[in-house]
């Protein structure tokens, strides 16, 4: 086997047919067997194609609608959200568009309100499902000291708000919309047991927990749920970065700083 013949990529989701006389240009692309440009392009909705990419199967109409609801619910967490705020920091300074989205991904990736929290919450849903006793144990037992990871330790139960007092209206509205669209599953159970879980955890349900329940119902593994969360929150970050680039630094917060160990000006300054 030559070195070149080893340089291949194995995939269960993508196949290409090369154009005649041009081995580097694809004439046809197939996603899990479906002709993307010949058929999917005209007949599928974006949520259907997104689901196909991640799951390898086209979704039912109900599943596609649930994914669409989720995508709308988290498309723009708003300019106060750390991920969007980070993107705006890039935008206002005129950084490249990719830097704005990289900033949004970094600030939106964490275990507190970010995609890693969705990952952790999905693990909880996989473990506890619709068993109140399992939830009670999971939410009241402090996490065992595990092996150190690059992620900082979680400081609140995943899926619940770090600081909120009540479950926010947008979270309740999204839950209602999803419950109306999907029968049973984690979402159906959450719709009737949300307040019980909030009582046990001592915190209101957050969008991360709602997302985790819905993504679990849609059949995504935690790693895929984490990736989708990162992906689906980018539209708002992009739009706000572009907006701030136009409005400029004079209209963007710079915040007051309290330096507790300031040595003060040098003599003569």
């Amino acid at each position: 086997m030559t070195a070149e013949s080893k340089d291949i990529i194995h995939s269960r989701l993508w196949e290409e047919e090369a154009a005649d006389a041009d081995p580097f240009t694809a004439d046809a692309c197939y996603c899990s067997g479906y002709d993307v440009y010949g058929e999917v392009l005209e007949h599928a909705t974006y949520p259907e194609y997104l689901y196909l990419l991640f799951r390898g199967e086209r979704p039912s109409a109900q599943t596609a609608r649930a994914l669409e609801i989720l995508a709308i619910a988290i498309a723009n967490p708003g300019p106060r959200d750390p991920s969007v705020h980070a993107a705006m920091c890039a935008g206002v300074g005129g950084s490249p568009g990719a830097a704005a989205l990289m900033a949004a991904l970094a600030a939106g990736a964490g275990v507190s309100g970010g995609a890693r929290e969705v990952f952790l919450s999905m693990q909880l849903w996989a473990h506890c499902a619709d068993h109140p006793a399992a939830w009670h144990e999971a939410l009241t037992t402090p996490p065992a000291a595990g092996r150190m990871q690059v992620w900082p330790d979680a400081e609140h139960p995943p899926g619940f708000a770090a600081h909120g007092q009540h479950c926010s209206l947008p979270v309740r509205q999204t839950l209602q919309a999803l419950a109306a669209c999907c029968d049973g599953g984690c979402i159906g159970w959450l719709a009737t047991h949300r307040e019980t879980l909030e009582l046990i955890s001592g915190r209101p349900l957050a969008m991360t927990g709602l997302l985790a329940a819905a993504l679990t119902d849609l059949g995504f593994a935690p790693a895929a749920g984490e990736m989708l969360t990162l992906l689906l929150r980018l539209p708002g970050a992009a739009a706000h970065a572009l907006e701030q680039e136009k409005s400029g630094i004079r209209h963007f917060p710079f915040f007051a700083l309290d330096i507790t160990n300031d040595p003060g000006p040098r003599a003569g300054q």
């Binding site: 291949i8 990529i9 580097f24 197939y30 899990s32 067997g33 086209r58």
Partner: peptide, 22 residues
Amino acid sequence: FPLRCQALIYHGPARRAWAKHA
């Protein structure tokens, strides 16, 4: 690191029709 279309080795489902499925 250019890759030819042929460098993709596909192991997924056989070709199928989206419209027909619908």
